[in-house]
Design a protein around this nucleic acid. Structure first.
Lengths: 182, 182
DNA sequence: GTCTATACGAAGATAGAC
DNA sequence: GTCTATCTTCGTATAGAC
């Protein structure tokens, strides 16, 4: 099979990769297109050739995580409520740990997340997961599930130095304590 | 006792008040000095007459919460470890609920909080409280305390519609579940 | 595809009049 | 104390050459 225009793809990938690192380290707001271009070794104009604007770069950065979350939501929909909760506990932790860089990025755009159609689906899927996590329609349990998610996401922020397994173990304990599924 | 130059104080207070509302609604980064000035009914230059810059406005906005947290840390230092933990559970919830607007604001400056000397003391006091909350030197309990704080702060964000008592009750349940002090 | 050069606007901050 | 006017810097985005 033929390689798909290597030059174009290589530059594009490098832009997304560097943008990810910068968004994570300094936050989305504090990162300019110039910063991204410099880190990627190209010019601002090149970034804007590949992406329609800064929000489009953000969407590309979030895309792998958004796809994983969407797949999880779809899988949970096939299960019974109890099985969906157990899957949500296990898999949500996995996703938050593996994509913890994305968690950092999302944190920074929270105040304006409603005005970003690029992340709308990801937010909607996250809320759906919160529902599966609660395991029931009891408002208290629903609130506790949201509480747990906030704790989980907070724990995965700025946790680059931790090993994946350590972080997973901690989050599993905390989640099961809150949800009383220990 | 003589009133302290009412005109000056009145304008200053109005600036802080409006800045608080704007920081909370749109985030610190997304709020300009012009926005604050317009909301306060004065000019940008007037804002900069009262405050040395945007970070100084932020410091003034955070000041009441910072004072309360500092007082709590000081009070906990006088107690036994077990009593300090119980005080931390009760009072930290109170502070987070009462100052939940400030929690919103802090959220937005997290990525750059290290570069803001204005909030350094508040952050340091928060970490100290996390220590009291853990109740022991066990690294797992320390991590769980941080997890709990993240959940607690997350719950207090964007919670303007909730009553104080509802929010307090929910946070108390969640905190005691995580810390196993139910 | 990628670049340089540039337009355009908004932000923080200052100067000086009133 | 508060204003208008201005400066400077920096952001996004576009135009056109290579």
């Amino acid at each position: 099979m033929a390689a798909t225009t290597p030059a174009r793809e290589r530059t594009r990938r490098e832009i997304v990769h560097q943008a990810m690192d910068l968004f994570q380290a300094r936050g989305y707001n504090a990162t300019s297109l110039q910063d991204i271009a410099t880190a990627a070794g190209c010019s601002k104009a090149t970034v804007l050739y590949h992406f329609s604007g800064k929000p489009a770069v953000l969407a590309a950065v979030l895309e792998p995580a958004a796809a994983d979350v969407a797949a999880l939501v779809k899988a949970a929909a096939e299960l019974s409520r109890a099985d969906a909760q157990e899957l949500a506990i296990k898999s949500f932790i996995d996703l938050a740990v593996v994509h913890r860089g994305v968690v950092d990025v999302l944190q920074d755009i929270l105040p304006v997340i409603e005005q970003m159609p690029e992340v709308g689906q990801l937010v909607a899927d996250g809320l759906q997961l919160s529902d599966y996590l609660a395991g029931s329609d009891d408002p208290l349990e629903q609130d506790l599930a949201k509480f747990a998610i906030n704790g989980l996401l907070g724990e995965c922020r700025h946790a680059q130095e931790r090993t994946d397994d350590d972080l997973r173990r901690l989050c599993d304990i905390a989640l099961r304590r809150i949800l009383r599924r220990a």
